[in-house]
Design a protein around this nucleic acid. Structure first.
Length: 762
DNA sequence: TCCTCATAACTTTTT
DNA sequence: GTTATGAGGA
């Protein structure tokens, strides 16, 4: 028993307890930076090395690929090659493999295709047509998300139809029914199916259920607060035999409820396993005292939460740097310049710095600033690799070869490159296939055979179309044959060659678009490189694993942890990561919190948690930025400071920003975003009393002035140039406006009725 | 059948 | 500022 006890070294008492509590259900509430991953990995190492559990009997499920990869790496270091036999993966990849092996029992054959959100939408549209429901009245996207939500709570089309609550759901139920049939006909599963059908399989098939229950003696679930009903049910099914289930989570970091994650799973866990041990990890090893204090203060504004008492022994550190920029361009420049300064003066590496934002679109300005200043950056996520057109094109070829029933891929591939088979021909063939109840591709094969033997065709098609179909079928048949014989990379090369894709992808459309074709080809090469990983597998398997990887792993990029590049990342994706220096940009009402999440208190609390996640990523330095103006779907508009900035105590900020506080409090309590200075509605604003940091007095609205201005308006001053209105306050019957001028002129306070100001219209 | 051009409609967050 | 759709012409 003494062997391997070093596994417990360096762990605090709570962590040690979590590692050693291996029998029976265990709930670990892990605050940010509390060594969660460390505990999970050491717990597995403890099982393997101290308790002599076969690695084969242990499964750890995570939420993201990144988390799975990190866990694998750490386990490799802890237990060496023993880690190879561990099951470590995301829920989705676990299920994908489960279905590949045993899906036949629920009507899914091993070569099934995984449909992504785009494919799903294509199929939903088809289903709506079959259900005769007008996509103008019912947006396919909305239908898709309704069906997706239904699946995440394990409602199949029949159960959903019984549960419908309103007219929209009644319509959705009809679509759902057809959609389910179409998936079956395509031998395909969507993301939600991976979970739902796996649960179905385990529930309905005793043999399969027992196989997995007997195999896994220990189960661990990471990021438990982000699991949905289906995922939780799956975990319970797997752990039913021995109840050795350990779930780790932090309700304060639950940021995926929009994807049907259900924090109530934590409560359910305590209910379902009434003998569960609960352990809280509250010591933070990651952040400075001030950063942690800011985070705690922010999150305490949320109503519904389990109270934790986070603390740290780390240094207090520096206050949170607040910067208010003119617009997103200036915001980005500030960030990049500041990083350059940190690298120069504080001996930091560029790789130590991360910039986080709410929506992907915000990365643009940052990228431009990086390019402009020669700052290397790594963009995480963004337009996902497999979503790029050419990548998806090639993928669809491969999917079709693997699963000829996949008509979504077939329909796409048939026009890449254009080969004279257009929408009309496709539709005619599909209609005929439908009538004969034969798969589309089989139909095409038949047409080709009939044509070759000179017989008359049962469909009226031009001879040009029939020739094109014959050629196409010949090519695909040949490639399907190769798919079962050639290593996957060679197969890809054959596809590229036979389908004449190289010249198609490389073609430079447009005149000035130099290099677009090269870029496309580069992406294809990258896909080919990824395929090399699977080249050694027996022919059809290599293709299968490649396709699975491409469907389930969002970013193919190598995730090089090079110290040379800064990281640009969304707040969602940043969860689970940490950086010495973190910049959070776009702290504005409507962005963070996002305008689509401001309807309800629950949504707002989730936005706050998202902000909390961002703050708690920072180890040493934290910057929070906002811009007074932000480009927003084409046009530029004024912004308001995020309410989250107000939640952070001034004494933790640098500089403390009373002005910001004024804007937030004054305007928000007034209720409108369009506060016109000239015609203020009767209301009160808060104003800081001179020279006393925390005293506020209430004053009444100013008298109307001659110039109508909004906060955020662009103005021109005859001397100071252009600037933006960032604040205002009443001043002896007049209005004093605060204007932040560009080009280093700085902030000026001006009397509205005297200052030579004019408003610049957009 | 395929391509070009115009316009509309929109963008959270991800497996 | 983008990307998805549609009309019209080659």
């Amino acid at each position: 028993m003494t062997l391997g006890m070093e596994i417990l070294e360096g762990l605090n008492p709570a962590q040690q307890q979590a590692v050693e509590t291996v029998d029976g259900p265990l709930l670990i509430i892990a605050g940010p930076g509390s060594g969660k991953t460390r505990v999970i990995t050491h717990r597995i190492a403890y099982l393997v090395r101290v308790r002599d559990v076969l690695p084969y009997r242990i499964a750890a499920v995570t939420f993201t690929n990144k988390a799975a990869r990190e866990m694998k790496d750490r386990l490799q270091r802890l237990v060496g090659t023993l880690s190879d036999a561990l099951t470590v993966g995301t829920f989705h990849s676990f299920c994908a493999q489960l279905l590949r092996r045993d899906g036949a029992h629920v009507g899914i054959s091993p070569n099934y295709t995984i449909f992504d959100a785009d494919d799903q939408l294509t199929l939903i549209k088809q289903a709506m047509e079959l259900a005769e429901i007008d996509p103008k009245h019912f947006p396919p996207q909305a239908v898709r998300s309704t069906i997706s939500k239904a699946k995440s709570v394990l409602l199949d089309s029949h159960a959903f139809a019984r549960n419908q609550q309103n007219y929209f759901e009644e319509r959705c139920a009809r679509v759902y029914h057809h959609y389910e049939e179409l998936l079956a006909r395509n031998n395909a599963a969507d993301f939600d199916d991976l979970l739902m059908r796996s649960v179905q399989l385990l529930q309905e098939n005793q043999e399969v259920r027992e196989k997995y229950q007997e195999r896994y003696h220990y189960l661990m679930v990471d990021e438990f607060q982000d699991t949905n009903v289906a995922q939780y049910r799956l975990a319970r099914l797997l752990a039913e035999e021995r109840h050795n289930i350990c779930v780790v989570g932090d309700p304060d970091q639950s940021i995926y409820s929009w994807r049907s994650a259900d924090i109530r799973n934590i409560l359910s866990f305590q209910h379902d396993y009434s003998d569960a041990t609960t352990i809280s990890l509250e010591q933070n090893y990651r952040s400075t005292g001030k950063i942690l204090a800011a985070a705690k203060q922010l999150i305490s504004a949320n109503g519904i939460r389990l109270n934790k008492d986070l603390f740290t022994d780390n240094d207090q550190g520096k206050p949170v740097t607040i910067h208010e920029a003119y617009d997103e361009g200036e915001e980005a420049s500030y960030v990049i310049d500041e990083i350059a300064r940190l690298v120069r003066e504080e001996k930091l590496q560029r790789g130590d710095c991360a910039v986080m934002y709410r929506v992907n679109a915000q990365s643009r300005a940052l990228e431009e600033a990086c390019l402009h200043r020669g700052m290397k950056y790594r963009l995480v996520g963004g337009v996902r690799f497999y979503q790029r057109r050419e990548v998806k094109d090639l993928m669809c070829y491969l999917r079709l070869l693997h699963n000829p029933l996949d008509e979504v891929s077939l329909a796409r591939v048939i026009g890449v490159p254009p080969r004279g088979i257009g929408a009309k021909t496709l539709r005619d063939m599909a209609d005929w296939a439908q009538r004969e109840n034969i798969p589309l591709y089989t139909t095409m094969q038949r047409l080709a055979t009939l044509h070759a033997s000179g017989e008359t065709l049962p469909v009226s098609l031009t001879s040009r179309a029939v020739n094109a179909i014959t050629d196409f079928v010949e090519m695909i048949d040949r490639l399907v044959d190769f798919a079962s014989k050639l290593p996957v990379v060679d197969l890809i090369d054959r596809v590229l060659e036979d389908a004449k894709l190289e010249q198609y992808f490389k073609r430079d459309e447009g005149d000035l678009e130099g290099g677009r074709g090269e870029e496309r080809w580069e992406n294809i090469r990258e896909l080919r490189t990824t395929a090399q990983e699977f080249n050694a597998e027996e022919p059809p398997n290599g293709l299968a694993t490649l396709l699975e990887r491409l469907s389930l792993v969002a970013d193919v990029d190598g995730y090089e942890e090079s110290g040379e590049s800064i990281t640009l990342i969304t707040l969602h994706q940043a969860k689970g990561l940490e950086f010495p220096v973190v910049f959070i940009v776009g702290l504005e009402e409507g962005l963070l919190p996002h305008s689509r999440s401001m309807e309800s208190e629950e949504e707002l609390e989730e936005e706050r948690r998202l902000c909390y996640v961002g703050i708690t990523r920072a180890q040493k330095l934290l910057y929070m930025l906002r811009a007074f103006r932000r480009g927003f779907m084409g046009r530029n508009g004024p912004t308001l400071a995020s309410r989250f900035l107000r939640d952070i105590p001034q004494e933790l900020m640098s500089p403390a920003h009373p002005r910001d506080k004024e804007i937030a409090q004054g305007v928000l309590s007034g209720g409108g975003t369009q506060d016109t200075l000239a015609t203020p509605a009767p209301r009160t604003i808060s104003r800081r009393i001179k020279d006393s940091a925390d005293a506020w007095e209430t004053v009444s609205s100013p008298a109307p002035a001659r110039l109508a201005l909004n906060l955020g308006d662009l103005v021109r001053h005859t001397v100071f140039g252009e600037g933006v209105v960032t604040g205002w306050e009443p001043d002896a019957g007049d209005v004093q406006v605060t204007v932040e001028f560009r080009d280093g002129v700085g902030v000026k306070r001006l009397l509205l009725s005297f200052a030579p100001l004019e408003k610049i219209e957009e």
